Every structure is written in C-alpha cells, then in structure tokens.
Simulated assay, not measured.
Amino acid sequence: MQAVVFLISAVLAAVISSSAGYQFGPLCCSNPTNAIRGSDIFGEGRFGASRGSRKHGGVDIKCEDGSKVYAPLDMTITRQSIPYRYGTKTAINNGIAFTAEGMRFKLWYIRPTKFSGTVRKGDLIGTMLSMQSVYSGITSHVHLEKDPKTDPMHVINTQDTAANRAFCSSRD
C-alpha cells in the first residue's frame, strides 16, 4: 500500500512540476533543496502542523541564521509583512509579501533588501534574521505562506534540486 501511495505521489509531483511552467529556486544556500523544518522543541514546520489551538498556515524552510535569502521565482515584492503584532519578537519581526506566477505569498524572518519592486529568480532579497535570539534551540528557518492559506508544497515541489545545488555552488 505504501508503495502505491509513494508512486501516486511521485507521479502527481512530476505532473504538477511539468505543467507549472516554472521551477522554485533555493531560498537559502544553506539548504539548496528547500527542506522543511522537521520536529523540534517548538513543533513542526509542515503546513497544517498543530500550533496549540490553531494550525500552521505555511511551511518553515530550513535556513541558517545570517544566510543570504534569494528570490525563488521571478516576483514582485508588494509590501513589508510582519509576522507578530504589537512589536513582539522584534529581532525576527520582518518579512515581505510578494506575488509570483499569479499567486500571493508572505516570507517571514528576513531583513529584506527592499519592500517593493520586481526581482528575478536568484536575486538577493534579504538576510535571514536570528531565530536563535528569540527561540533558542529551534531549527532556524524562513516561513513561507501562500495566500489564501493553502499548502505551498505544490509550488516548492516544482524545484529542480540539481539546478538549485548548482546555483548555490556558484555562490560559495
């Protein structure tokens, strides 16, 4: 049964990837395959993971504190987006909202290079803020949220991991 589920998942991922017409690039070269944060003392990074009385509305893509953050697609940055209300957790309370491929996203826990304008896939868009200064022991990550809050993995799964690794190798 597991083999059948795996095969169906692989076929669907291939169909989605080939029909999308775009490939999601690496957000951080410390994680060129955009691996999602697993379980740690603060929870899980997958879409829909429990957050007490609510569900996680995005995915947490592992990224080392201080890493350069790159545009994963050709995109238009539309505004600043902050994850926490009332100035809490100021060390990581920054990010952007952007559109790409007809979809809307938020990307949090970065110090953006700008809050508006168009950028090309692979352009530097910011620096990863220090998650450890706020959540000591968490797996550091950027939070990617699709608007409306639906699982963004179908977008991330369009990536070409070999191309992403090559992109990051050229930046070392």
Rank of each mutant, 00 (worst) to 15 (best):
S169C: 01
S133D: 15
I92R: 02
P72Y: 15
I96R: 02
F6E: 14
G48H: 07
Q132R: 10
S18R: 13
I41E: 13
V155D: 06
E64G: 11
I8K: 11
T99Y: 02
G137C: 04
D65M: 03
M128D: 13
G95K: 02
D147P: 00
G66Q: 14
S140Q: 01
R46Q: 10
V11S: 06
P32R: 11
G45W: 01
Y135S: 07
N34Y: 07
K55L: 12
I92Y: 01
A166F: 04
A35E: 15
I77G: 10
L129M: 15
H56M: 13
I96T: 08
S116R: 07
V15K: 11
A100W: 06
Q2P: 05
G25K: 06
S130I: 05
G38N: 06
C63P: 02
T88M: 00
A163P: 02
I125G: 10
T158I: 14
V4T: 03
S53F: 12
Q159T: 14
Q23G: 01
H56K: 14
V59H: 08
F115W: 01
D147C: 07
N34S: 12
R46K: 09
L27P: 12
I8D: 04
N164V: 13
V142H: 02
R51M: 14
C168K: 09
E145D: 14
I82V: 15
L144Q: 10
A49N: 07
S170R: 10
C28S: 15
L144D: 12
M131S: 08
A71H: 03
I82C: 02
D60V: 08
M103W: 11
R51E: 15
S133W: 00
S30M: 09
A13H: 03
P112W: 12
M1Q: 08
R54A: 09
Q80Y: 00
M103Q: 14
S39E: 13
Y109Q: 12
A97R: 12
T76V: 12
M153N: 06
S140M: 04
V15S: 13
F24E: 02
I41W: 00
F167V: 07
